[in-house]
Nucleic acid binder design. Structure first.
Lengths: 224, 224
DNA sequence: ATTTGTTAGTTGCAATATTAAACTAAGTTG
DNA sequence: CAACTTAGTTTAATATTGCAACTAACAAAT
């Protein structure tokens, strides 16, 4: 009955040079040994409390990155996607600030722009595309992109992050109003981003209660 | 490695007496023999092209219903959800008009209101709640609820369906404008809903290109 | 045949939301 | 200290929404 191969795959996304990048690793074993692929691995029934735990464990083991925003994306399946046989991949996506990959991430993690990816094994291209599409969609009516920022950031920076994810400019006044309505940010008292040749910007941080919870709006931030 | 139990479960939803109902069946085998549960079953690796095909097959076999709007919901997993061992349920949700369950559906299908469900085995309550929540959310910015209507329906009827799903009244003028913008409907030439003691309403049908594709708006139909 | 009641479908307008453009604020650089 | 640059706010125009009132078209009652 169940000679089904059960795995998890993680689409770890970050913003690098104002473009979404996905973290890939060279496979250590066959099939596709040496080929760049999504971090993933078998579910360990003895050890994992559920597939989310399997994804957390796998991401930590393969990339060194712990507890980012991690959400289930979808399950991909079929007899052809893995040459070893009928397989299931419960895929997750994660968003992290770029510096976190440099600091906590293993040195062999490679970041590639999500546009014009090619040569990915299995159905990993399809999985990445689904993740990017999900992130773009969700970003237009939620606080999702804040997870691409670090601890502290300015509103102009956050706006640039939204614009990079959405792929289009957004109105400054509307953006600030929507972010205000989301109620997710708090100003860091007395902390300004100085050093640049202009008026310094207020630094903000994510409120504690939204560290791993999204905030949603009913009106989109952009025009989609 | 893989003594993992792989199943699909389907949350088949319909509108009955203006309330969302879920289709349940009494389990024929242990565990939970005789208890009302979601239609579901093992993935057949020899036979199924993927989990979507497994869901279609299972739904057809257990309820007699073929090719409704069927979409993947999420994957539920863990050692405790099924007493037989570490298991995975790739769950799907489907929307059908009520009469379809009466006609094509097997006679032992039971429809229960999704509110105040209790006594469901496994984590089926959680799965139903996730499905209902997804449907409510998606309905506010898409054409999803049309799949709860039959072949032909009037705009006032469709509005009542939206209101039942969303759980709140929607503005008539705005509703009609949004539905018009969705571009999913075409009037059935010369077909009016007669017989009632008032002006007859125009009958509409879903355009061919949207029979299994949603149409989305960026502005919600309601206030959420 | 005409009036009454009821719901379908539209129109006009007031209230609300969005956005562009202009403005003020506050720093660095030359 | 004038020039420049970006932060953040204000104002006004534009677009969207939603209420209320309207006309339309039927059946049932008179």
């Amino acid at each position: 009955m169940s000679e089904i191969i059960c795995t998890v795959d993680i689409v770890l996304l970050t913003l690098k040079e104002e473009c979404l990048h996905v973290a890939l690793l060279r496979r250590e074993h066959e099939p596709f040994k040496g080929v760049l692929a999504l971090p993933g691995g078998y579910i360990h029934a003895e050890e994992d409390a559920d597939t989310h735990a399997a994804a957390v464990r796998t991401l930590q083991a393969k990339t060194g990155i712990a507890s980012p925003y991690l959400e289930q994306l979808a399950t991909f399946s079929g007899p052809g996607r893995d040459p070893r046989g009928w397989s299931i991949s419960i895929s997750y996506y994660a968003l992290v600030p770029e510096n976190l990959i440099g600091e906590a991430g293993h040195p062999h993690v490679e970041l590639l722009p999500v546009e014009r990816l090619k040569g990915l094994p299995f159905d990993h291209l399809q999985i990445v595309e689904a993740a990017v599409s999900r992130v773009r969609n969700k970003s237009s009516y939620s606080s999702l992109p804040v997870y691409l920022c670090g601890e502290a950031f300015t509103l102009p920076r956050l706006q640039a992050v939204y614009e990079a994810v959405l792929g289009e400019p957004v109105n400054k006044v509307s953006f600030r109003r929507k972010i205000d309505e989301l109620g997710i940010l708090e100003p860091i008292e007395g902390a300004l981003e100085t050093g640049k040749a202009n008026r310094p910007a207020q630094l903000y941080r994510l409120r504690k209660e939204y560290r791993d919870r999204l905030s949603l709006t009913d009106r989109a931030l952009n025009a989609r």
